[in-house]
Amino acid sequence: MRNLLLLFLCGFPFFGFAQGAFNIPKHQIGISYFGETLLHPGVVLSYDHSWKSFLIEKTSKKGKVKDKLYSLEYGVRVGGYNFTRNHTGLFLAPILTMTRTTPKGSFYRMGFQAGGIAKILNAPVFDLANSTSSPGMQDRYLYFMGGFRLGVGKDLSVKHPKLPLKWQLGSSLFFTHPFSSSQLWQNAIELGLTWKIG
């Protein structure tokens, strides 16, 4: 019975406020390539504010302690991409992100974003209701945008304390609504850097 309890305790994660080996920045700003369907190029700028973080200590059967830092961040993303002869998308979306970081600096993150996207048709638009002889100015359309962001990366400051940088690779899966008579799902690949501030 005592062994069972020990086993249980070994496997039980201990929660605590994040400290120690983890350098938690208050603010982070980032810039990433934003490739809608990979090849439609764009850029996204992001700001994240650290909201909550907690450390989970997990002890393996061999008695090895493994720390994982979970942090909750809120922020905003502003970006755009160009889909030639289709549209240019400009978006602004608040985002809530959960990041899991190891002591070595590797992390993965999941986020939920919701905001707005303006799609600008990047060719002349003839509005048949107004004029068929000259293109009109009604070529910007606003849509609701929502979706997920997944990513992995590495905190370079763990190895190089004077380098407050992270690189990350991820994907944004988002929908724009309305489209046709429902919504359009889009995917973007992101690769970029984040600066840790404060």
Binding site: A123, P124, V125, D127, P135, Q138
Partner: peptide, 15 residues
């Protein structure tokens, strides 16, 4: 030449 025509909610590409 590439352009769109817009009518009754639809933006239709023309090439």
């Amino acid at each position: 030449d590439f352009f769109f025509i817009e009518n009754e909610g639809a933006q239709m590409p023309v090439w």
